[in-house]
Design a protein around this nucleic acid. Structure first.
Length: 415
RNA sequence: GGAGGGGUGGCCGAGCGGUCAAAGGCAGCAGACUGUAAAUCUGCCGACGUAUGUCUACGUAGGUUCGAAUCCUACCCCCUCCA
């Protein structure tokens, strides 16, 4: 690989975003000059994106930072079909109303990471339903279907794996790649977009788009994929006890989001700093060189930076402050999950009920189990009695701190 | 349309009349060790209850039986082969 000239490719190469590219040198030449649009598609199967989409989101952010134009493609049309890539079974069909609601939620996430507008480097958001829904079947087959060979399509992983494992693949899903390829052609025509990016599982779909545009329009466009991010111990990134790590505030509190990053494995810290923060490379190199307990400082910086990008400066500071009080001083911060109780009702309030109410336990049975296992602390004092009730005397500063294990804490606030 | 196979807990997957809240694995939670890390070891892992107890659950709805995830009937869904 020769030396990269464009700021964009230099940055994403150095920070570890590049997995495959259709023509790296050609792409570099295109991006070395004036602003160029590039897009990534996101589907609308949920009303929020989660941490698993952070790499594509950050790719668009880097693109904008390097002076180019990010296009966020919402898969309003393709979501009706479902991408078979990486899935064993067809996804559930969503209604138009579901999709519209999901798109609105996802839009609010992107507004944190990109600056939208009408300028040459402002981000825009478009919806492939706008062109896919009106396609005429016969005309589409005649104009574009003839450029796809079934023989070739059967060799793509998304299709091949299903067939090899004898799992069903509907004709509907089989068409997904054709529509995604057409998206690229359409976006190239309308917006002059030269590049589609995506996760490594999108390689086949992206290549199809590049080839279709070349055959139909003679356009020279490019594809680039990012590696699938797993943790150093091999787990898929982005899952916790409560499920997915959502980017939307209303699905996951800023404190929990901060904690997710704070709990990064040692071996991942450097890689994650490069991928998920805007910190300069020199700073990252210094942080990832830390060893032993010192690497915890790097994890805090990672948590702060990642939370700041997604939830704002204030939320990041509050989460850090709460974590500092909770873990380092044994006190409690304001951002912990809490439940409010009338002072008069306090002495009748069972600890296990409080644990369920604050989310520390999913059921009373689980709460009892945690107590039996010695995991529960009340104001940092171990609690052994599964039937214990709260007492007004425990409410220092008008609140009682409950802990389930070392990491999960909550407050009972007395009114 | 015809013939066969199948739908089990978050996932995978055993069970094939009672001893089944259902083996085993994965995921998850807690404890020990640590650094809010990893690895390792130990315990837990449907709900409600102090409880040997009750309830809910093995695609859906009925039925047979003292007793059904297991047998029968109908329906829904999926797969394979044939047309």
């Amino acid at each position: 690989m020769s030396t990269l000239k464009s700021a964009f490719l230099q940055a994403i190469s150095e920070r570890g975003y590049i997995h495959q590219c259709t023509d790296l040198d050609g792409l570099d030449a295109v991006f070395a000059g004036t602003p160029v649009p590039a897009y990534i598609g996101f589907d609308c199967t949920a009303d929020s994106l989660h941490v698993g989409s952070m790499v594509p989101i950050m790719l668009l952010r880097r693109l904008q930072q390097a002076g180019h134009k990010p296009i966020v493609l919402m898969g309003g049309g393709t979501t009706k079909i479902g991408d078979p890539s990486g899935k064993d079974t067809a996804r559930q069909m969503l209604t138009d109303a579901d999709i519209a609601r999901n798109m609105a939620g996802i839009r609010s996430v992107f507004e944190k990471f990109l600056s939208f507008g009408d300028g040459p480097t402002d981000a825009i958001m478009i919806n492939n339903d706008d062109w896919l829904n009106g396609l005429s079947y016969v005309a589409f087959l005649r104009d574009y279907g003839r450029h796809f060979s079934i023989n070739r399509m059967l060799t793509f992983d998304s299709v091949k794996l299903r067939l090899e494992r004898e799992q069903p693949l509907s004709f509907l899903e089989f068409n997904y790649m054709i529509l995604q390829a057409y998206d690229f052609l359409e976006i190239n025509r309308t917006y002059g977009c030269r590049l589609q990016m995506g996760g490594s599982d999108q390689w086949g779909n992206i290549v199809n788009g590049v080839e279709l545009a070349r055959r139909v329009d003679g356009a020279e466009i490019f594809g680039l994929t990012a590696p699938l991010i797993t943790t150093a111990s091999g787990a898929k990134m982005g899952k916790t006890a409560q499920g997915a790590v959502w980017l939307n505030e209303d699905r996951l509190s800023a404190y929990d989001y901060w904690q997710f990053w704070r709990n990064t494995e040692d071996a991942d810290v450097g890689r994650f700093l490069k991928l998920f923060t805007d910190l300069p490379m020199e700073e990252i190199r210094r942080l990832e060189a830390l060893r032993g307990a010192e690497i915890n400082d790097a994890k805090k910086i990672l948590a702060n930076e990642a939370t700041r990008l997604c939830r704002g400066e204030a939320a990041a500071q509050e989460a850090e402050e709460t974590a500092r009080k909770t873990f380092e001083q044994g006190r409690s911060g304001d951002a912990l999950p809490s439940v409010e109780v009338e002072a008069a009702a306090l002495s009748d309030y069972a600890v296990i009920d409080a644990m369920v109410a604050t989310g520390l336990a999913a059921s009373k049975g689980e709460a009892r189990r945690l107590i039996k296992q010695g995991a529960v602390k009340l104001n940092d004092a171990p609690l052994a009695d599964t039937e214990a009730k709260l007492a007004p005397a425990q409410a220092a500063d008008g609140q009682i701190k409950l802990s389930a294990g070392k990491k999960r804490h909550a407050l009972v606030k007395v009114r």
